[in-house]
């Protein structure tokens, strides 16, 4: 599996396809996060921005191999493992991106609540921000995996459904991503830090279930 992930990561890195989603994330942060803003607000925003970016990364990784090269790797390791490696590569890159975003937000934000009256402890805030980012990345990965091959093969439909599903999973009640992000934002009003453990568990379970299903589907639907 290490060799497969290394192969997929090298493909992503050298093809420079990663550039567009990374730029999108940078633009999100540049627009929504300014120095001196309350830290929990900014952490929530940065985590939310990671969800569509992760979905996009998953889509890129799942389709980056030309069919001939995919069959060659699939004969060696099996389609499910190759697909899982691409999903893990995308999720891993999103994790790096999310960590970088969280660190930047922590460095430039004001560790206080919305009206700058209550101090917010930085370490719990960092933990909450990081877990919220992971939660959003996992859910974004699940959304991306469901909206690309082997489930959706047509590129146009794939992009459209990804955009819609990413938006819905940020605003729909009951979505772990929404729960984690609102936890941070509402906590910012009073200065209380909510560590999003439950949403993280739910998002991880959803991501694992989706990965298991789509990886099995690859042998049947390509």
């Amino acid at each position: 599996m290490t060799a497969l992930i290394r192969y997929q990561a090298a493909l992503l890195l050298r093809s420079q396809r990663w550039l567009a989603p990374v730029l999108l994330y940078a633009v999100f942060l540049a627009v929504g996060v300014q120095s001196g803003q309350p830290v929990l607000d900014s952490l929530g925003y940065a985590a939310a921005a990671l969800l569509p970016v992760t979905a996009w990364l998953v889509q890129l990784c799942a389709t980056q191999e030309p069919p001939a090269a995919r069959t060659v790797a699939a004969a060696v390791a099996g389609q499910p493992r190759v697909h899982l490696a691409s999903l893990l590569t995308a999720a891993g890159s999103a994790g790096l991106l999310g960590t970088a975003g969280t660190v930047i937000v922590l460095l430039i934000s004001d560790p206080a609540n919305v009206d700058h009256t209550v101090r917010v402890p930085l370490l719990p805030a960092a933990l909450a921000g990081l877990l919220a980012a992971v939660c959003c990345a996992l859910l974004g990965a699940a959304v991306g995996a469901l909206c690309t091959r082997p489930v959706v093969h047509r590129r146009g439909w794939s992009v459209a459904t990804t955009a819609l599903a990413a938006l819905l999973s940020l605003v729909t009640t009951g979505s772990p991503a929404k729960y984690a992000v609102t936890g941070l934002v509402t906590g910012s009003l009073t200065g209380a830090v909510h560590i999003p453990v439950l949403p993280l568990i739910c998002a991880a379970a959803a991501a694992c279930a989706v990965a298991a299903v789509v990886c099995r589907l690859t042998s049947l639907r390509g």
Binding site: L11, A68, A69, V72, V76
Partner: peptide
């Protein structure tokens, strides 16, 4: 190991 009929792999390697 599998060898496909055509291998026009546009891979960045």
């Amino acid at each position: 190991a599998y060898v496909p009929e055509r291998f026009p792999a546009a891979l960045p390697f």
